[in-house]
Amino acid sequence: MSLHIGRPGLLTTIQDAGRPGYRQAGVSVGGPVDPRALRVANALVGNAPGTAALEITLLGPTIRFSTDHLLALTGADLSATLNGQPLPLNRAVAVRAGTELSFGRPKAGCRAYLAVAGGLAVPTVLGSRGTYLAAGIGGLAGRALRADDVLPVAAPGAVRQRQLLLARSPQLPRVAASWFADPALTPRPEVAPLLRAVPGPEYGQFTAASQRAFWAEEFRVTPASNRMGSRLAGPALLRSAYAPELLSAAVTFGTVQVPPGGQPIVLLADHQTTGGYPRLALVAATDWSRLAQVPPGGVLRFQEISLPEAQQLYMEQEQQLRQLERAVALRPM
């Protein structure tokens, strides 16, 4: 079982839950920039959370399926089609051998996730199949996909095998399963999202005007953004003249750090493990998806919430995701 890549797309990488546990060795956790979208995609095809799938950025690849597959596409709407027919998002879909998946114009969002039942069976490096571009490890030879790559797929479990039999119906090339994810878990990417964020450890060192500007003004995602961070352009955010010199310390996904020039960087999946810039705020984990889906040129704003609120949102979303994972496991096609 395998996926055959035609055009590779702009930046298509294999991602799973990443490699937590190696931060003290300087190794980024990595994983999907939109962790919720990957998790929903895996849940829809009955994969365990964190099974290896494709992260597709803006301009998607073309993929031919060597055998019948059960797949799900989540996250950005990048005009996906199966043999020319629109592919619905956020649904499990059975496809027959020989079907071609392709993408067109990005309509909403920036990153889509393609999960196939069984998962991509590339070797693990430091416990993960995910691609870590900066270190050149994981995924397929530590790099983004190229034309003519062939991605092995592990055999799905027995239940999914039976469901795939349905794919041998005359309705092909595709049959959508009857289940889909709770719309609350799969919102259509917004044009100018409001990202909830908690003030960071050095928030108090910024001038009152900069604090106000951070919550009130709009920021644009610049083309210098990548999987390490979203570089923003907006009003300059400055620390007060008396702010102390900072020593490098741990940073995490969602950290809004501000270099001396005053233009913030929001750290994403492949961020460095430590940083020495002031940490102005932290984007709530539930809003990493919104952040991940703003393409270069897009705008976003921030809304202040408290840490207890952020943790409450985190627990609620985790509850919803676990419910989805359990529900699909029990569902016939």
């Binding site: 546990g21 190696y22 931060r23 003290q24 493990t273 430590t274």
Partner: peptide, 13 residues
């Protein structure tokens, strides 16, 4: 989950 030491900090994930 894990610990990340730095110059004067230990971050507990």
């Amino acid at each position: 989950v894990e610990l990340v030491p730095a110059f004067t900090t230990l971050t507990v994930f």
